[in-house]
Design a protein around this nucleic acid. Structure first.
Lengths: 237, 237
DNA sequence: TTTTTCCACTTGTATAGACAGGTAGTTATT
DNA sequence: AATAACTACCTGTCTATACAAGTGGAAAAA
C-alpha cells in the first residue's frame, strides 16, 4: 500500500472516471467546493488535482462555469511521457511489442545523438530495441538507452513489463519532462526491414531526452514512427 | 496601466532576469521564502509563479535544493504556443516570412481537418497562408484558419506583425493549450512548389488546434515543415 | 581520517479562510 | 415582450500557517 498525496488520489480518481466514460465528454466535473467536501480536502488541494487534468488535456476550466471534460482519450499527452504500452493500453486497438535487441553496453554508441555527462558516459548503458505493432502492423521502432547508474538487476526487473513502469515501481524514477527533436526522413534500409516499409517511405524520427526526478539521470530514445495509418497525437501546454 | 496578478508580475520579472542573463543558466533562483519576502506575497503565490516557469522550461525544481535555471532560450517551448516569428526571434538565424494568401472566407474548407462547432462553422474564417524562411531557405508552409468571431478590423490590425501577437494585444486572446497530430508525408506537388522541394521529399505535417482563453474560440493550423536542415525542438511536461 | 549524526534550509503537501470576478438563470422593471 | 437587476454558484487570486521530506554541509563520533 503506497500512500499517495490527496491531490494525486483525486487526480487519478477523476481521470479514471473520465476515461471510463462515467463522466462523459462535454459534461461538467463536480465543482471545486463539491469535490473538496466529498474528499474532505481543501479547495487548494482540489485545484492542484484539476490542474493536472488540465495539463493532460482532459478538462478545460471556465471561469464562473466549471470544469468541462473535453477529452476521454487515455492516450492524451501520455505519448510525451511514457513508452508505447501506456499510450495504447486503453484504446480498442490491439498493440504488441517485439524485442529485437536487449543488452548491456560498457560504452555508448559513438557518436551519440545527445551530449552526455561524464557520469553517464563512464557508466555505460542498457540498450533496448523494440518494434511496436498496432493491429498487427509494425508502426514504431524504439531504441532506448538507459545509463547504468544504480539500477541493480535491471533486466530481471524489466522482464516483459513496461520499461517506464519498472523504473517507477522498482527504482522510484519518474519522468518529469521530455525534450525532443522531431524530423521527417526517408526510411533508411535498416529501419525499413524492421517496420516492413517500401523504399523512401516517409518516417517520423524523434530524438528524445527524458528528464527524471533522479538528478543527472536521463533516458534517451530514438524513435522511428510510421505514421500512415496511425498518427502521433500530442498536446502541449 | 493594467494591474497584473502578483504571481504574473513575479513570473515576468524572473523570466526577464533569466533570458537577459542576470540570473545565469545553472544557477539557483532565490528560494521561495526569499521571494515571498522580497515581493511581500505568500509562498503559495510565489509557487504559482515558479510553476509557470517550470511549464515554460526555464527552471527545474529540486526538492530540498531549490529552483535551478536550466535554460535562457527565449524560444523554449514557445514553438508549441505561438507562431514562427516568436520562435525564431531570439536565435542568431535570420528568418523571414512571405505571405502567399490572405483572405476572408464565408465558409470553411470542406472537409476540414478538425471538427468545428456550429458557432465556428457559421462564422466563417480568416485564412492566412505563409512561407517561413530561415537563412533564405523555405522551411515551413503554414496555413492558418481563424474563426471570424468578434475580430473587428482583423486584417488591418494584423498588418505585417505577428498573428498571435496581434490576437493578444488587440483582442486579449491568449493561447492556453495546443493539440496536435503529427505525421511524416511525402511532399505533395502543391507544397513542393512553395518550399522548393524535390519529389518525394519527406515532410513533417502537423495539424494544430490552439485553445484560447476565449471560450469556444480556437485557431487551426496546418503546418508543413522541411526538417532537413532545421529540426523541430520541443519540450513537454 | 573516515564515517555518522545533526542541522539549517529547501521544496512538497495541506489546511482554513477570504474576496474578486465571471456565468447563467430568475426575477423585477421598463 | 424586451431589458435590466438580482442571485446563486463557479473559478481566480491571495493570505497565513503548518508540517513532511529531501539536500548539503558542518559538527560529532568512530
Amino acid at each position: 500500500m503506497e500512500k499517495l498525496p490527496h491531490y494525486k488520489k483525486l487526480h487519478l480518481d477523476l481521470k479514471g472516471q473520465i476515461v471510463s466514460g462515467q463522466i462523459p465528454k462535454g459534461s461538467l466535473l463536480p465543482s471545486e467546493n463539491e469535490l473538496s467536501n466529498a474528499y474532505n480536502i481543501t479547495r487548494a488541494t482540489v485545484r492542484q488535482a484539476l490542474q493536472e487534468l488540465v495539463k493532460e488535456g482532459f478538462i478545460e476550466k471556465r471561469m464562473g462555469l466549471g470544469s468541462v471534460v473535453v477529452s476521454n482519450r487515455k492516450t492524451l499527452g501520455l505519448l510525451t511521457f511514457r513508452g508505447f504500452s501506456e499510450v495504447m493500453e486503453s484504446s480498442t486497438l490491439t498493440s504488441t511489442t517485439h524485442i529485437l535487441s536487449q543488452k548491456s553496453m560498457a560504452s555508448w554508441p559513438q557518436p551519440f545523438f545527445h551530449g552526455l555527462s561524464m557520469e553517464e558516459r563512464q557508466a555505460g548503458c542498457f540498450y533496448l530495441e523494440r518494434v511496436r505493432n498496432v493491429e498487427g502492423n509494425p508502426v514504431m521502432l524504439e531504441q532506448t538507452y538507459i545509463p547504468r547508474m544504480k539500477l541493480d538487476n535491471f533486466w530481471e526487473l524489466v522482464g516483459d513489463s513496461s520499461l517506464f513502469g519498472t523504473l517507477t515501481r522498482s527504482y522510484q524514477i519518474e519522468i518529469l519532462q521530455v525534450l525532443q527533436d522531431i524530423r521527417a526522413i526517408s526510411a533508411p534500409g535498416s529501419i525499413r526491414n524492421a517496420l516492413r516499409l517500401p523504399e523512401k517511405a516517409p518516417l517520423l524520427h524523434i530524438y528524445r531526452k527524458y528528464l527524471t526526478n533522479r538528478p543527472h539521470f536521463h533516458v534517451y530514445s530514438s524513435l522511428y514512427c510510421h505514421t500512415e495509418k496511425y498518427t502521433l497525437s500530442n498536446f502541449f501546454n
